[in-house]
Design a protein around this nucleic acid. Structure first.
Lengths: 133, 133
DNA sequence: TGTAGTGTCATATTATACTATGACACTAGT
DNA sequence: ACTAGTGTCATAGTATAATATGACACTACA
């Protein structure tokens, strides 16, 4: 997996897991990949994934069954959403608006780009099957 | 100065300097604070500010006069704007839209918040003078 | 010609993230 | 009972950011 260099890898992995929960790919009570499997899949160290899971567990988004693995909490979806919204409002929004203002970008242009974004990333593509992986 | 913990301090300082250039507070050919002065003002180490200035110099936004100090490049405004726009388009925009989609926030709400942001941060406040510091 | 202000360089130390590796205990299923 | 899969713990090593200091060369100016 490709990682940005401006954020800790374990937080990007937590965001990746959170996104799968938010999108419903990993529903409540479902087992998520083991720390070893996800480490191999994302090509990072086992300890790094463990740090991500510890973080998500501290949010109450996932929980652990001894000897078995990690599972999405019954209210995992809400927990992830609450955390992301908090961060979004408190941090991302201000920086984003500041850039829009300083770079002199019109709100209309932003709206247009957003429509393109949705189409490109979340529109059902009729010709494809098995988008999961 | 308060720094976020999710981005290197020297980059946040570079962004701070860049913002002053974009806002016209520090026009072309004007001398910017010495590494020592800015280090004291922002309560960081001298070396950290030097790293910020090296970075901005590599962008062509500022340049150095030996023994005197750093100055805003003739096209410093454009250089800063080009860099920020590139980063904005390539990195920030996708994450922002992704959050808007996942958190189910309406574009109309974003627009409303943006108007509030502009009023709160960039509207001239009649009662105040000497906003610089 | 001092001297204060400037950037520059070198070294050492601390903290954190990430990696690498080995060992251990718990659980499920054979 | 054995075994495979799970999380957990401990230790060590590497890289980077940030700090703390001291020393040096250049420039402007009194």
């Amino acid at each position: 997996m490709k990682f940005r260099d401006n954020e800790a890898i374990y937080l990007q992995i937590a965001a990746y897991v959170g996104q799968n929960i938010l999108l419903g790919k990993w529903p409540a009570e479902q087992k998520i990949p083991s720390v070893r499997d996800l480490a191999i899949e994302l090509e990072v160290n086992l300890n790094t994934v463990m740090r991500s899971y510890e973080f998500l567990e501290s949010l109450g988004a996932i929980y652990n069954k001894r000897g078995i693995g990690f599972f999405v909490s019954p209210d995992g979806h809400e927990k992830v959403k609450a955390f992301r919204k908090e961060k979004f409002i408190q941090q991302d929004l201000h920086d984003f608006f500041n850039n829009v203002y300083l770079l002199d970008i019109s709100p209309e242009e932003i709206l247009k780009w957003y429509q393109q974004f949705k189409k490109a990333n979340y529109e059902p593509k009729p010709g494809k099957k098995n988008e999961n992986k």
